[in-house]
C-alpha cells in the first residue's frame, strides 16, 4: 500500500529538528531509519501532517565512552550497534539482543533511538535498555532532560516524550563483568517475540549476587521481573534459579493474540527467564 501525503523537512541539527517539531505540534512524526514508521504509513495506520527526517544529523550517530557509561547516539543503526566494539565489550546484552532484531536489511536502516521511541512492547530493545538501567536523553524547546528507562515507557507505543521532544542519545551504564543473555522466543525468524527475556547477572563466589531480568511483550510496556530478580539473588545452582524464575510473570499483564494467550506467555516468561539466567550465569 501507499503512504498518505505529508510535508517533509530534513533538519541539519537537533535544534532545527526540535523547532520543526514544536511548530508542527501533535501532527508531526520523527523519521529516523523509518523501519517502524514506513510500514505504519504504508498500511495507513499513521497520518502525520509533517515528517521530520532526522536521518542526516551527524551528531546523533555513533558510540562514545564516557567512563562509567556508553553514550549511543539515537540514530546509530542496529547494524552499527551490534558491531560496535565498545558496545560489545561493555554492553554485550544490547549487542546480543540487537542481533535478533528483524533482519540484516532492516538492521541497516533501523536505529536504536527509533526502536525505543516507537515503544512497541514486543520490540526487543525496550526491555533490554530497561534491564541495563539505561537513561534516555531527550532535547526539547526547553533544553535537555535525562529520563531513566524505567520512566520512559508509558503505554503501548507511548513514551514520556513530548511531541516536540527528540530522543538524542541513550546512556548505557557499563555492565563489565556481568553475564548476559537475551532469550527471544518467536515462531519464525522474522516474527515478533511471543516473549523475550533479557537477563543480566553478576556472580560472586559461584552464586548470583545480583540479577536483572527484563521482559518483552509481557504487557503494554517492557517490564522488569522484579520478583524474580529478588528471588534470584543468592541462587547458587540451576534448581535455585528455576525456583526463582517461577515468579518471573508476577505483575505482568500479557496480551492475547494469535501467537499466544496470556497464560502461555506467563508460562514462557518463567521458562525463558530460567534459561536466560542460567545462560547469563554460566550455569546453563
Amino acid at each position: 500500500m501507499i503512504p498518505p501525503a505529508f510535508d517533509y523537512v530534513r533538519p541539519a541539527s537537533v535544534d532545527e529538528a526540535v523547532r520543526a517539531l514544536a511548530d508542527a505540534g501533535e501532527d508531526a512524526k520523527v523519521l529516523a531509519g523509518g523501519q517502524s514508521l514506513l510500514p505504519l504509513l504504508r498500511l495507513r495506520l499513521a497520518f502525520p501532517e509533517l515528517v521530520v527526517d532526522v536521518g542526516r544529523i551527524p551528531e546523533l550517530r555513533g558510540v562514545r565512552d564516557e567512563g562509567d557509561a556508553l553514550v549511543i547516539g539515537a540514530l546509530t543503526t542496529h547494524h552499527d550497534v551490534m558491531h560496535d566494539p565498545l558496545v560489545r565489550r561493555h554492553a554485550g546484552l544490547l549487542a546480543a539482543a540487537t542481533e535478533t532484531v528483524a533482519d540484516p536489511a532492516v538492521r541497516h536502516r533501523g536505529t536504536l533511538g527509533g526502536s525505543l521511541a516507537h515503544a512497541d512492547p514486543a520490540g526487543d530493545l525496550p526491555a533490554v535498555v530497561l534491564t541495563l538501567d539505561a537513561e534516555l536523553v531527550a532535547v526539547g524547546p526547553n533544553g535537555r532532560r535525562t529520563i531513566p528507562a524505567r520512566e520512559f515507557f508509558v503505554d503501548y507505543l507511548q513514551t514520556v516524550l513530548a511531541p516536540d521532544e527528540l530522543l538524542v542519545e541513550v546512556r548505557v551504564p557499563k555492565a563489565d563483568g556481568w553475564g548476559f543473555h537475551y532469550e527471544k522466543f518467536h515462531r519464525v525468524a522474522q516474527a515478533w517475540p511471543i516473549v523475550g527475556v533479557a537477563a543480566l547477572v553478576r556472580r560472586d563466589n559461584g552464586h548470583i549476587a545480583e540479577a536483572r531480568v527484563g521482559l518483552s511483550n509481557m504487557g503494554s510496556t517492557p517490564l522488569r521481573a522484579t520478583a524474580a530478580e529478588q528471588a534470584l539473588a543468592g541462587a547458587g545452582d540451576p534448581d535455585a534459579v528455576a525456583r526463582a524464575a517461577e515468579s518471573a510473570a508476577e505483575g505482568t499483564r500479557p496480551s492475547q493474540d494469535p501467537s499466544g494467550s496470556p497464560e502461555y506467555r506467563a508460562h514462557l516468561a518463567r521458562v525463558l527467564t530460567k534459561r536466560a539466567v542460567l545462560t547469563a550465569a554460566g550455569m546453563g
Binding site: V188, A189, A191, W192, D257, P258
Partner: peptide
Amino acid sequence: YEEAVYDAEGNLVSGTMADYLVPSAA
C-alpha cells in the same frame, strides 16, 4: 507455521505478512 486467523467478527487477524508466518530460510 501458517494459518489465516479470523476474529469473532470475521476480520482477518493475520492480515499482513508480519502476522501470517511464511517461513524463511532460517
